[in-house]
């Protein structure tokens, strides 16, 4: 009996070691992949980085004929389209998640929940085609002329909404991105809102709080980390989205104040130009764009972490 036990224990020990080793290997693999990606990006981008220096991120010119490349246009386009997308998607997703978890009649809960998940499963090329063939003509014929006419007398809005209504452009790209990231943010928010203990909410209601007050003061603070996580997930997708944006942004390496004007993003510039890029500096500049996107995404995630730490510290101080 004792012998069997010892054997069993020894075997368990081996299993345990193998298991630990396997999980460690999986974790290290992520680091290796990330490091490898960073390394090859830096290596590929080096000719452009050493040739242009900091000018690469401060100039707008992107001229394959004269071999002059500046990334300001794509950087601007990436940030602006993602901002538009988040401005629309975050409040909407918040509304969807709150409604689904707190207010929704049981009959509607499943259909809406499934619809959100299905929306997340639509491939991005479908959004691109839809944006170009369906959304862009509607915007061009109905929405943009109205925007241009009504924004004209208002100082700041005039600059944002001027120029010919092409239908495609920075605003359209932002709208399509908003629809694409919406399900990710909404689904994450719904899941974290569901983890709020019923007791906490009931206590809130017991104290005479309104639905809004319970949500804002109980549900949201409790699921802060999850909310930020969901928003970051959406933002990450918006920053890196390629195909759908390429279809509807107008692909011009220009910075225009108007949101109706065509622009470009980092990933769509790479997708557009990489296949026919002849010449080392050209290819290298496109890889340098990839490196920039990598850095931007990294910065966004780092800022989110910092924000979360701040939030939890101030929450700790309040209690």
């Amino acid at each position: 009996m004792a012998i069997i036990d010892a054997r069993h224990a020894a075997r368990q020990l081996v299993y345990e070691r193998v298991f630990r080793g396997a999980t460690l290997a999986a974790a290290v693999l992520v680091l290796l992949i990330l490091g490898g990606v960073a390394l090859s990006l830096v290596k590929g981008a080096w000719p452009a980085v050493s040739h242009f220096g900091p000018k690469f991120v401060t100039t707008e010119a992107w001229n394959p004929v004269t071999d002059e490349y500046g990334a300001l246009g794509p950087i601007y386009g990436t940030l602006v389209t993602s901002t538009i997308a988040m401005l629309i998607a975050v409040p909407t997703a918040f509304g969807i998640a709150l409604f689904l978890t707190q207010l929704c009649p049981a009959v509607l809960k499943r259909p809406i929940g499934v619809a959100v998940e299905l929306l997340a499963a639509v491939p991005s090329i479908i959004f691109g085609i839809w944006g170009l063939f369906v959304l862009a003509p509607i915007l061009q014929r109905h929405v943009q002329p109205w925007l241009i006419a009504h924004a004209a007398p208002i100082p700041v809005l005039h600059a944002l909404f001027k120029g010919p209504p092409y239908g495609i452009g920075v605003l359209t790209a932002g709208l399509v991105l908003a629809i694409m990231v919406l399900p990710f943010i909404a689904a994450t928010m719904r899941d974290v809102f569901e983890t709020v203990p019923a007791m906490l909410k009931e206590s809130g209601y017991g104290l005479g709080a309104t639905t809004w007050e319970v949500m804002w003061h109980v549900v949201v603070p409790h699921s802060r980390v999850g909310i930020v996580g969901g928003v970051m997930l959406g933002l990450g997708r918006a920053l890196g989205e390629t195909m759908a944006v390429t279809f509807v942004i107008g692909n011009a390496h220009r910075i225009s104040a108007s949101l109706l004007a065509p622009g470009t993003t980092i990933s769509s510039a790479i997708a557009n130009e990489f296949t026919e890029a002849v010449g080392d500096l050209y290819t290298s500049s496109l890889i340098a764009l990839g490196l920039l996107l990598f850095l931007i995404t990294f910065t966004v995630i780092a800022l989110a972490q910092l924000m979360l730490r701040r939030l939890s510290r101030s929450a700790g101080a309040a209690t």
């Binding site: 001229n63 394959p64 004929v65 107008g250 065509p262 557009n272 130009e273």
Partner: peptide, 16 residues
């Protein structure tokens, strides 16, 4: 502008 497989167009919209 010059000639190339992609050039810096001064105006208009780009489609894929």
């Amino acid at each position: 502008i010059g000639a190339n497989t992609s050039v810096q167009w001064p105006s208009g919209i780009g489609a894929k």
